[in-house]
Nucleic acid binder design. Structure first.
Lengths: 82, 82
DNA sequence: ATATAAAGTAATGTTAACCTTACTTTAATT
DNA sequence: AATTAAAGTAAGGTTAACATTACTTTATAT
C-alpha cells in the first residue's frame, strides 16, 4: 500500500533503523513497509503514524492503493469468481 | 484491542454477518475482532472504519489497549530485555 | 415449547507479516 | 580509491490473521 513514510521520515531526519528502534520493530520491517513489499500490521501502522504525529490515514494512503487481500484471493479460489 | 465495533454496528442496525459481507470478510472474523480475539489487519480495520464513516482511530482504541506484539515478545526472547 | 436469527466458539489449513542473520548495492565523505 | 552509513534484498523460521465448516448458545418471536 502506498505511504508517505520516506517523506515523513526524512522530514524528521530519521534513518529506517532509527525509526525501527523508535517504534520497536526491525529495520527490515520498516524498509519492507516503506517500499510496499508488504502491508503493515495495525500496530506498526499506528506506531509509525504516532512517531510522525499523524493519523494512520495520513501516512498510509488507502484510497490510492489497491488491496490484494487474502480474503479476495481466497474467495476467488473457492468459488471461481473472476 | 479495544474497539467500538458493536456499538457502531448496532447503531447502523447491522448484524456481524451483514458487516462482514459489506466489507468482504467472514462473519467469524468480524466476531473475533469485535470480541478482541485477535487484531484486525490494517485493511479490515480500514474497511470497518469506512463502513461507519469513521477514522480507524475512532473505531479502534489504541491508547486504551495493550499491545502484546510479536515483536516485543520475540525481542525479549532473543536478547533478554525485560 | 419450537422455530429461527444472531452470536459465539472450535478445528483445521493457508498465508503473509513479522523475526534474525547475512550479503549486496548505493551514496556520501575523505 | 577506499571507507562507511544507509538502504535494499534474500533465506529460513515462527506466528497470528484470516478462510471454511460445523457445532453450540442465546435471544426473540410465533
Amino acid at each position: 500500500m502506498k505511504n508517505r513514510i520516506k517523506e515523513l521520515r526524512e522530514q524528521k531526519g530519521l534513518t529506517q533503523e532509527q525509526l525501527g528502534k523508535l517504534i520497536g520493530t526491525s529495520r527490515q520491517a520498516i524498509n519492507a513497509i516503506e517500499t510496499e513489499k508488504f502491508e503493515p500490521s495495525i500496530w506498526i501502522a499506528y506506531d509509525i503514524a504516532q512517531a510522525f504525529g499523524c493519523a494512520i490515514e495520513e501516512v498510509f494512503l488507502f484510497e490510492e492503493s489497491t488491496k490484494k487481500s487474502r480474503a479476495e484471493i481466497s474467495r476467488r479460489d473457492h468459488n471461481g469468481n473472476s
